[in-house]
Each structure stands twice: as C-alpha cells, then as structure tokens.
Simulated assay, not measured.
Amino acid sequence: MTGIEARKTSGPGVRIDLDASRRVLVITGDPAARAVLADNLQAMATAEDGGHLHIDYFPEHPYLAEGSVPIVVNSPHGRMPTR
C-alpha cells in the first residue's frame, strides 16, 4: 500500500475500501464515525504494550458501513498485549 485517503460523506458510518489500482486505502464517512475510527487507531498507535486491532463490519456495527473491507491494524510496538 502506498497511501491512505480520507473523504467526508454524509454517512451514516465509515466505509473502508482498497483502490487497488492506486494501492491506496480509501476511508469515507461522516465526521462522527470517522472520529470513532480515528480514536480507535490512535489508541492502537499509542498502546505501549503492543497488540493489534481487527476492524470488521458486522450487522449493526457501531461505526462501520456495510461493504467495508476488513483490516487488521498492528501496533507499532509489536507483540501481544500483556494485560
């Protein structure tokens, strides 16, 4: 992947797609849902004990829109959490 592109839409929710031709992860969604996703990503990035975060759509997901591709976000600190 070469980049991430975020776009504001009226919602509801966030949709995560892959633009394979450009090798770009595309995130679209309403501001509130994008803020929840951003908070989750920030928490993973700053978790000092490592780990990973699965972001997968399921019916009635609190912020993901149907059709989102599943992603796994690894901590920059690696390893599994100790807590």
Rank of each mutant, 00 (worst) to 15 (best):
A6S: 15
T9K: 06
D49C: 12
Y57S: 03
H77V: 06
G3E: 07
L18S: 10
H52D: 08
H54C: 00
E60L: 09
D17Y: 02
I71T: 00
A35P: 03
S68K: 06
L18Q: 10
R83Y: 11
L64I: 04
H52A: 12
V24A: 05
T28C: 13
S10N: 13
P59L: 00
M1N: 12
E5P: 01
A20D: 10
T82L: 14
G51H: 03
D39C: 14
R83W: 12
H77I: 02
L64C: 01
L53W: 03
D56F: 04
D49P: 09
S10M: 14
I4F: 13
P62A: 10
P81R: 04
E60D: 10
A38Y: 14
G51M: 04
A33T: 02
V73E: 05
S21R: 08
P31R: 14
E60Y: 04
M80D: 12
V72W: 00
A35R: 13
H61E: 11
L37H: 03
G50S: 10
E66P: 02
A6E: 15
Q42S: 13
A38M: 14
G11H: 05
V14R: 01
R23G: 09
R7C: 06
T46M: 13
A6T: 15
V36A: 09
V69N: 07
T2F: 11
P12C: 09
R83K: 07
T46F: 12
A65H: 05
A6Q: 15
I55R: 01
P12N: 10
R22G: 09
R22I: 09
I71Q: 01
L53S: 03
V24Y: 07
I4L: 15
A43I: 08
M1E: 12
E5Y: 12
L25G: 01
N74C: 11
A65D: 03
I55H: 03
L53A: 05
H61I: 05
N40G: 11
A45T: 10
D19C: 06
D30Y: 06
R15C: 04
L25W: 09
H61C: 09
G67S: 01
E60A: 11
K8F: 15
G78W: 06
P81F: 06
R22F: 07
G51N: 03
T46K: 13
